[in-house]
Design a binder for these strands. Structure first.
Lengths: 253, 253
DNA sequence: GAGTGGTCTAGACCACTTG
DNA sequence: AAGTGGTCTAGACCACTCT
């Protein structure tokens, strides 16, 4: 092969390029895409690689497939990346808003029973517990209460908690968030929520609890994020083949 | 080929069989699965087919993969099928509970502005609007308010709305639900909710709004389902590669 | 009936994990 | 260093859609 060495696989490059072509409106008039054969010729690869490309694009919701018919571009769907579902900063930026934060509390303390269980910690373990009010374009929308493993939380000292994306800074320091398990339910506002989010006590709030781990499955943090009900909604698209999830900012009512 | 003709593809059969072997605890002691090569020999297929099998199993959350290492079974994860996310009856049965329903209201009327927009209907269109209280093992957990296209709703007359799964009956009649878009948020209970769900007025409730379409993308129904906050939670598992969503019944508090 | 996507094979090389 | 999953090729046949 005379192709230069590449760290991202070919099918991924082709997928990204196709996704860009779709996003830039190349297939607006006629949504149907080139056939696998045509693309294999265009990109000078085998049909198998093109099929891998489409497998990826279908999994990420960019194209649809029906046996026998040309594939079609899914209009206007911009899927959120994993980081947008885990990092408030990333999510806000992807939504075109400016995120900020105000530290309410930061302490190093013994892990509670719940933290011990969810983070799989021994009885005596320590955690760093951080409560922040998160704002979108200056408006309070969420109270974030995160518990970090001790060796992760120890790094918080070097981070500007009001401005930086903790996720990004931790990644630079070697702690990459890669998998998450979220639970979404509804609760009534307690006193702290009511005060910080400027809602009535007992107002309905959307709660997202999340355990996040690194690529090896090591648990790194547990977070309990409580949103103003009028500021956010979760959106899910699914079919028998796949599921996609978005977290959406709601227009100010 | 001497293999008999088969309508479900080979890789799918192997995937189902493997999923069952995992579910029945065959890999409890050592979670690592056989290698692709071993499985290709066991099932007398090529490695490509086994890779397709695993591609499917990974997409549905049954196994994990790491380059270089043996694949591992994900313990105790039984992914919900699409129907479990759209049909209360299916969901309840999958969770091992007995679903039932009580019809609160059923009428044929002009589509509201919201219905016109969401179901892409003309101004003059009719819809069938059905409100049901849904129960899990006899306990009220959800108020379901569904608007059906006229030609779909007209079939409701022949369905036992208290017991049958509408989804199943409609499928028998040729209307198959295949894709859905859900929005999840929190609201305060109104009077009807409070009365039917036996909660205080203004209690926090989890609301799921959903537009469902058939395999061709034709919109069939719009539903607004409101759950008691202590009876259900949505769970999402995700990584950079995929997203999975579950709807979980909560243990009675 | 021609075109297109879905399935399957057989072999190759690479990147990463593990002993 | 051996084993394993990740990528890629080159062909084959089938099932479905479109005109």
């Amino acid at each position: 092969m005379s192709t230069p060495p590449q760290k991202t696989p070919l099918y991924r490059k082709i997928a990204d390029e196709l996704a860009n072509r779709i996003a830039s409106g190349e297939f607006i008039a006629d949504r149907s895409l080139p056939s696998e054969f045509e693309l294999a010729e265009q990109y000078q690869v085998s049909r198998g690689t093109i099929r891998q490309t489409f497998s990826h694009l279908r999994a990420t919701g960019v194209v649809t497939s029906r046996q026998g018919a040309r594939r079609e571009a899914v209009p206007g769907q911009r899927l959120q990346s994993f980081s947008a579902l885990v990092s408030f900063s990333h999510w806000a930026k992807a939504a075109g808003a400016t995120p900020s934060g105000r530290v309410i509390e930061l302490e190093r303390r013994r892990a509670s029973r719940v933290e011990q269980e969810l983070l799989e910690l021994p009885d005596s373990a320590w955690v760093y517990h951080l409560i922040r009010l998160r704002l979108l374009d200056g408006k309070a929308v969420m109270v974030e209460s995160t518990s970090y493993l001790e060796r992760v939380g120890a790094l918080l000292a070097g981070i500007d908690l009001a401005k930086d994306s903790i996720t990004d800074r931790l990644a630079q320091l070697g702690f990459v968030l890669a998998e998450a398990e979220h639970t979404i339910d509804a609760i009534a506002a307690d006193e702290l929520h009511a005060e910080l989010l400027e809602v009535a006590p007992d107002a309905p709030l959307l709660r997202e609890r999340r355990v996040t781990s690194d690529p090896n499955g090591t648990l790194l943090e547990y977070s309990e994020d409580v949103y103003r009900a009028d500021s956010i909604a979760f959106t899910m698209r699914n079919s028998s083949r796949n599921h996609h999830l978005l977290k959406n900012a709601l227009p100010p009512a």
